[in-house]
Design a protein around this nucleic acid. Structure first.
Length: 107
DNA sequence: CTGTTGACTGTCG
DNA sequence: GCGACAGCCAACA
């Protein structure tokens, strides 16, 4: 997969878009892949723009906590969407995150 | 143009 | 183990 833009934002979009159903990714994973784990904030910023093509609800923090849920329509929506894909969530936190964690490989 | 903020993480104390 | 500081880049006031 070739990145259309070299911009950090576009890279984030490309990666998040490639997250398959039933899988999730973390800000740190994406950030590291883009160069620095510190860039996780930028991932959040990018997702703040949240284009329709980007399933931002599949992106969680390193702990598996649904921190991004705040910016969604509702608290339960993000959890319900993930649970609908087979991901087990408890107290707004993903259980066995490592199992559901998806890492970019085709970029 | 300058300063603050933001869906975070890592390191230091 | 927990709290505070730093770092990263981009948008907004």
């Amino acid at each position: 997969m070739i990145i259309k833009q070299d911009n950090f934002f576009h890279k984030v979009y490309e990666i998040v878009r490639q997250i398959p159903q039933g899988k999730v990714s973390t800000y740190a994973t994406i950030g590291k892949y883009l160069g620095s784990a510190k860039s996780a904030r930028m991932v959040g910023w990018a997702l703040n723009k949240c284009p329709s093509d980007v399933p931002a609800y599949r992106v969680v923090n390193q702990k598996g906590l649904l921190t991004g849920k705040i910016h969604f329509h509702g608290i339960c929506l993000m959890q319900q969407l993930l649970e609908n894909e087979g991901i087990v969530i408890e107290k707004n936190q993903i259980v066995d995150l490592e199992i559901f964690l998806w890492k970019p490989s085709n970029i």
